[in-house]
């Protein structure tokens, strides 16, 4: 195959404990570390491995957002992507509109395979890949833990609730990746320097001719109801007594 397209979303870093703003208008993101959505790094790593096996010739990374997302795209280029596209918009983008943006880029670029994270760790929606597959009218293989390419088909093992399911899909297609698919490579300094010279195209959202999907409005943010810290017991006998008191054993 020729081209693999990978989505990279800029999100609050995995290690940050997100706080809701006191007025309920959102979560605190000022001065918070931002990173590539961890699932998207796994998606890119898989695309690079497919290319390195000689099964694809180009890996393109795509992000949707403000100019700040260039940081995440540059990291993707340093990991080994060939070029980057930023669809620029100030608005936060809902999954269906994001799927339509991907579809517009797929048509421009003639993409054979799209690899995305199974979910973004900010909104936890887990929708965009499935929606893109629907909009594109192509197969989806979600929650992938193993991927092999064989000519015009791919065999994908998926993490499902009862174990591992394997499906075969015709290309072009959309794959969304789970945690166990691979371990993304570390970026080396010389690669960061080289990445600065790789092409990064910026396309204003308005130039794509994509219609924004009906919006689900967020009315309010609130912190979760916390659990109360309970009792500590001294030993196993104390634990068994406490469990018996609650009628649990």
């Amino acid at each position: 195959m020729e081209k693999i397209l990978v989505g990279l979303k800029r999100v609050v870093d995995y290690n940050v404990r997100v706080q809701v703003k006191s007025d309920g208008s959102g979560v605190e993101t000022d001065g918070v570390k931002m990173s590539i959505n961890p699932f998207d790094e796994i998606a890119l790593e898989e695309a690079l491995r497919i290319k390195e096996r000689g099964e694809a010739s180009e890996v393109i990374v795509l992000s949707i957002g403000t100019a700040e997302s260039q940081q995440q795209l540059r990291t993707g280029l340093a990991m080994g992507a060939d070029r980057a596209i930023l669809v620029e918009t100030d608005a936060s983008t809902d999954p269906l509109t994001a799927a339509r943006i991907f579809q517009a880029i797929i048509e421009r670029e003639n993409v054979d395979l799209v690899i995305l994270g199974k979910q973004a760790i900010d909104d936890d929606n887990s929708q965009t890949g499935q929606m893109l597959a629907a909009v594109w009218g192509r197969p989806q293989a979600t929650f992938a833990s193993a991927v092999s390419i064989d000519g015009n088909t791919a065999r994908v093992t998926r993490e499902v609730d009862i174990g591992l399911e394997t499906i075969e899909i015709d290309l072009p297609a959309v794959i969304t990746v789970d945690l166990r698919l691979n371990e993304p490579r570390y970026v080396k300094l010389p690669d960061i320097m080289k990445a600065k010279k790789k092409p990064l195209d910026q396309i204003p959202f308005a130039d794509l001719g994509v219609e924004t999907a009906p919006q689900i409005k967020t009315m309010k943010f609130e912190p979760p109801e916390g659990r109360q810290r309970g009792i500590m017991v001294e030993d196993v006998a104390g634990l068994v007594t406490a469990l018996k008191d609650k009628g649990l054993v």
Binding site: V12, R17, V18, Q19, V20, V27, I121, D122, D123, D124, P214, Q215, I216, K217, T218, M219, K220, F221, E222, P223, P224
Partner: peptide
């Protein structure tokens, strides 16, 4: 959202 660190109230059209 955010791994349960925040709960949002949302309204669909």
């Amino acid at each position: 959202i955010y791994a349960g660190n925040a709960i949002v109230t949302v309204e669909a059209p």
